[in-house]
C-alpha cells in the first residue's frame, strides 16, 4: 500500500493593502483569518491614515499558490470592517518600501568597510559608539536583504524591520 506524503504547490509573493475601520479587534480579525485558514503572513504593517483616526491602512505581504492568494483577497473583503482590498502585485507597478535598523559591531578594517558600504546603500548611521553603529536604511525588501547579508560578514548584531508599505505608481489610488 502506498504511503502518504504531504505535497507542496508552487507559490507566489503578493503585497496586499487593506483599508479598514479602525475599531477594536480588527487587527486580531485579520491576523486570525490568516492563521485560521492556513495562509502565510511574511509581514504586516498597520497605522491609521485619516485625520479623525477612523480608518487604518494595513499592508500585508503573503505568499501562496495563486488560488490561495485569490481566496485571501476574497476572505479579507468578506470582513465587515474591511472597506477595500487591493492586491498591488496584481494591480500593476507599485512602490514598496520598508525601514530597517541594523546594528553592526566591529573594529579596524571591518568597521571602516561597514561605513563605506552603508554609504553606497545610503544607509544613515543613527547611533555610533567606538565599537558599533546603528544604520537606518529605507528601501525595497531585497535592498535591505542585500545590505543585511553584507553586514553579516562585517559584524552584524541585530536587525529590526518595519515590514512593507506599498502604493500603486501613477495617479491612481490603490
Amino acid at each position: 500500500m502506498e504511503m502518504m506524503h504531504i505535497k507542496h504547490e508552487a507559490e507566489e509573493r503578493h503585497v496586499l493593502t487593506v483599508t479598514v475601520d479602525n475599531e477594536a479587534g480588527i487587527l486580531a480579525k485579520i491576523a486570525g483569518l490568516f492563521t485560521a485558514r492556513g495562509y502565510n503572513i511574511d509581514s504586516l504593517t498597520v497605522a491609521d491614515i485619516t485625520e479623525n483616526h477612523a480608518v487604518s491602512r494595513i499592508t500585508i505581504v503573503t505568499h501562496g499558490p495563486p488560488s490561495q492568494i485569490d481566496q485571501i483577497h476574497a476572505q479579507l473583503e468578506r470582513l465587515v470592517p474591511v472597506h477595500k482590498v487591493v492586491d498591488l502585485t496584481e494591480a500593476g507597478p507599485f512602490v514598496q518600501r520598508e525601514l530597517a535598523l541594523i546594528k553592526v559591531a566591529g573594529a579596524g578594517e571591518k568597521r571602516v568597510e561597514a561605513l563605506r558600504i552603508a554609504d553606497v546603500f545610503r544607509a544613515k548611521p543613527v547611533d555610533t559608539t567606538t565599537e558599533s553603529f546603528i544604520f537606518e536604511l529605507t528601501g525595497a525588501p531585497d535592498k535591505i536583504d542585500t545590505f543585511v547579508a553584507i553586514m553579516r560578514e562585517l559584524g552584524l548584531v541585530e536587525v529590526g524591520r518595519t515590514g512593507v508599505v506599498g502604493m500603486i505608481r501613477g495617479t491612481k489610488e490603490a
Partner: peptide, 14 residues
Amino acid sequence: TVGISRHCTKHNYL
C-alpha cells in the same frame, strides 16, 4: 468571547 467567536461569526462586537 469576542476572541473565541471571531472565526465562527460573520461579525462580532464588544
